[in-house]
Design a protein around this nucleic acid. Sequence first.
DNA 1: TCAATGCTTCGGTCCAGATCGAAGCATGAA
DNA 2: TTCATGCTTCGATCTGGACCGAAGCATTGA
Lengths: 227, 227
Amino acid sequence: MKEGPDIARLGTLIGDPARANMLTALMGGQALTASELAQAAGVSLPTASSHLSKLEDGGLLSQRKQGRHRYFALADTATGAMLESLMGFAASRGHLRHKPGPKDPALRKARICYDHLAGDFGVRMLDSFLCEGVIAAEGEKLTLTKAGHARVSALGIDVESLHSPRRPLCKSCLDWSERRSHLAGSLGRALLGHFIDNGWARRVADSRIIDFTPEGERRFMAVFPVD
Amino acid sequence: MKEGPDIARLGTLIGDPARANMLTALMGGQALTASELAQAAGVSLPTASSHLSKLEDGGLLSQRKQGRHRYFALADTATGAMLESLMGFAASRGHLRHKPGPKDPALRKARICYDHLAGDFGVRMLDSFLCEGVIAAEGEKLTLTKAGHARVSALGIDVESLHSPRRPLCKSCLDWSERRSHLAGSLGRALLGHFIDNGWARRVADSRIIDFTPEGERRFMAVFPVD
DNA sequence: TCAATGCTTCGGTCCAGATCGAAGCATGAA
DNA sequence: TTCATGCTTCGATCTGGACCGAAGCATTGA
């Protein structure tokens, strides 16, 4: 009777509606904060926190602490595949729910993340920097290269003034819409300030959206090429 | 936030230990009576009856009445495949429910997966088929080659009679103990039947274990070589 | 330093559902 | 008919765990 793996434990983890909602939300591939997952699940923050630690103990989630936030994501692709297979089976038995609402595309395109650029544009910028050797990546660690120093200075940014004992110059930050990293740290902040000061973009009131002008977008694309 | 299929309901069904035990017992492919399932689950008859009707409502089980008995079985092969995939995932996260007893190695060596051979032997058989061009793999899809048709027929299996509009001839099924694929589908079923009919192996009662005789094992190894 | 934010822990409430005994229905055997 | 068997339904109990408010902790910003 007691043979093989414990599917009951897995089932219990997935079987709670709040946890299932969280897992479904994470199926998009984006890493989400505890607060966002609480809202997605429709429960309070303490309840969500409890669920998240259970899911992590069960090996379904991985988490990454970043500043005040805690980002959660599916542990690996096998987890996503398992959930997808469950969804397929559930759908085949007519266990369905409702349709989703529209998402804000502007938020995915470019938004502020604390103080630096995130979204499609933020990811593109870091990709471009890595590709051109402006920034070197060593695991999670990002460092500005000697060539990068010159390149950023040429943009009109005073790199020396950005050094601080309290904050790293470059830091990688996980992007929720792209599920890839973008550039944080004092340099990330300075670059966003640069775009706004030069009229390439502006902040939209009461929103995290960064709105690029057509000209600003053109110049951004030119300055940060991606092969 | 309410999007996609309802995996919570499915999880709840599988998440109860008694129900999980019943489903595991039915993974052997045999139809079992309510009393037998009650014993397998370790609960009283009334409790088992309640669980069984829930599983049936959820589309996981089919039942047929026969005299005073009521026989339950997994609804279809998709159900077996879904459960096996859950077991694979659970095993990968270390969700095992027992001390590694004497039954465990036997289960890993050769066991029945709904109606076909799984475990070390099942994986070896498919590996051998792929290696010798009996079966061609194209992603998840498996097809019997022309040469394979002759080869399988030579084993004494009537391939023509296996074709069915309801079930594929060859299908890959993820093996939880090996974390690799073995052969499912009507051909997989026929091959296991062949081994048993020819006395190479027999089913162990009240278990998913397939017990190969020394001679059967010798012939199996000869017929399905792996480099 | 203090205040704001994001999250966890603690303490207590509450309820869905798992459980079983007893009774109720079938079916089959005599 | 009468009895035995296999299973379901009913009624009642009980508990695991989902839930939230308040307090606590950690990080960041001012």
